[in-house]
Design a protein around this nucleic acid. Structure first.
Lengths: 212, 212, 212, 212
DNA sequence: TATGAATGAGGTTTCATTCAT
DNA sequence: TATGAATGAAACCTCATTCAT
């Protein structure tokens, strides 16, 4: 619908819209800067320049640098959280479900900027307890709970033999995290086929597959 | 004459010794500060205060903040590197060797400041390629090579069934890295028994054990 | 509406104007400080205080102390350069032209802050080749070329007997430079009537005058 | 005489001698540094390094940087002063005497480090009144007095026609000072034959010469 | 709302000077 | 006497934040 005055087609109609766009540009720019420099080394000047707004404009949207950072991380995590909420694509075997999830994660997180956000949280978490708390509450604990449920399903169905695995669902996702970190730090030195690594990892858990 | 005062063991004899001590104090203090604040947010003023020296003294030992950081990380990694060089305590089964190694790592790295150094590298690596390079060259690639050798030994001896594991030795150590990160970020929220987790992980690889 | 307050002539209308004023104040203050302390001993803190701005404001106008210095000198030389460009007040004898020029120079340079700038260039030139180059190119070589033209005119007209003088136009201006230096260093000890000295100097070149 | 123990010929016999040598080395090094950097930008560290002594040693010979500078300049001026004291090589014409003096000055001052000392005084004089005073008293006023005496002798002998010249002996030496400054600042851009220039200058005063 | 010039606290770094050896 | 490690005041410069327009 929306159907506003078509204007010059490009210019974003009304004021509210332009404001929202500016805000989005700031968020986008700030994320990029924070990812590539970390919190302390990021200059709001650069964020403003990259977002195409004046420095003062940032303060119309965020109280200060710190709350901007925290809010940003939260915002950026929402898509990941939503994905966790989404019911796993029930259907095939548990292995297929886990593998689907991991492929998704590796493709959409480990190899993209979202992976850098994870690394950013690892980097700045200790100095921003609010962020570590939020990340634990919204991502880690939910993700592990979901993974544990899958593991238990796998055990119940007889796909997984190792009963103890449900005590440490972290093991299931460990290679995915490794992939994220490897990507940021070492892909230059040696590329890593994260998806294949994950498959081998699943072989350990579910037993070797017949066919690929 | 000068009487050769025997000193009360506390006063560090000669000048060179005191200088060395001061340097050690600076290194110690700087590591602590870098770990808890990251590179950019660390103030050399605080480092000096913590080390009990004047600000200028730092510059007698290091060219500037950046090279201090790089040199520090290198220095701090040496013990880890040495441990990797040390021939694995050959003897029992491959599983025992790996488990011994992991216990050692978790006890001496994951739960100590050394673990924070690993996290620091993850955090600052992208901004300090020299550090990431050094870490890859001296720690990661060697560690993975050693691990691959062990895996191949395990396969040769029949302890390990999954031949593909040797392609991704990262899988073997993944839980150890998870432990390091968990320790820094989430141990407050939920403690993690890293050693037990690693044991379960080894069960996946070597098969379940009869007795503990 | 906003009533268009006519302002009381003191308040500098719009923002751009105030910025320009501030910049001018910085330049003014910096020149004074550089002149009285030299480059290295000048503190930007003092410049800011004298200009009535904050320290950071200086950096909105100049990249750093060094480029501020170079730019300042260049700016300050422009009036002198313009004067050199101006066609000499053709008219009377060559002697009158030279004497007019010298009187002007002594009055407007040797006895004012502009003279100190010349001394500043002498003082800092070796450490700022860019400045010495600029000064040579824009002031010295042009000034000497002009002076040589005048000398040749004087020779052609028969006012000057010494044909060799055109090989060293420096001789013509030497007393003017002496005056500049004397002013800065020794006027306290013994005042120097630079204009009279120059007249005597011209007597050597053009022959003694009948009347004053 | 001196005839001390020949020792190893190279090593400077006794302690006092070594101390004197060290002092000389410091003076030498400091002069070089001050000349090429100016007072404020000279680092005592560099002076010490260049002199081959420890930083602290400088303070055994000089109260502080400032008095070292002043003392240095004084010391360095002594040879020039002595030369002024020396009775002019009476003999030929006044012109010969002046020319001899000027050639000497240009050869031994303008083209050497001593010329840089003159420039250094021009540069730092205003900030070191004691130095400007000393220089005026010991060099300038004496030099000008001597020059005035020569001029008056020239007038008396009929060699010089311009009676007023004795009022401004500065005119006589002006080209020599020009040469000093030119050397430091512009010799890179355009060499200046100072001796020839001075000769032309003398032609103005004494009349053109028959033979060269 | 949006701007960006201005601020000034605070950071890194330098260097004259001291002093225990 | 000579050393040079240590000091810490003071310099340059940055950048989060404010505010008049």
């Amino acid at each position: 619908m929306k159907a506003q005055a078509p204007k010059t087609a490009k210019a974003p109609a009304n004021r509210a819209e332009r404001t929202a766009e500016r805000r989005a540009a700031i968020i986008e720019a700030a994320l990029d800067e924070f990812i590539s420099r970390g919190f302390a080394a990021t200059r709001l000047d650069d964020v403003a320049k990259r977002a195409g707004v004046a420095k003062g404009t940032i303060y119309l949207h965020f109280k200060d640098k710190e709350s901007m950072f925290e809010e940003l991380i939260r915002t950026a995590l929402v898509p990941m959280i939503n994905r966790l909420h989404a019911p796993p694509p029930v259907g095939g075997s548990v292995r297929d479900m886990v593998e689907g999830f991991a492929q998704n994660f590796i493709r959409e997180v480990a190899s993209t900027r979202r992976g850098d956000i994870v690394r950013l949280i690892v980097a700045e978490g200790p100095r921003f307890p609010a962020i570590a708390d939020f990340y634990y509450r919204e991502v880690v604990s939910r993700g592990l709970a979901g993974m544990r449920a899958l593991i238990e399903l796998g055990i119940a169905r007889g796909e997984i033999q190792h009963k103890n695995l449900s005590r440490f669902p972290q093991i299931m996702v460990a290679p995915a995290l490794i992939a994220v970190i490897w990507q940021s730090l070492f892909s230059r030195h040696a590329p890593l086929d994260a998806i294949e690594m994950f498959r081998v990892h699943l072989d350990l858990i579910f037993g070797e597959r017949r066919a690929t």
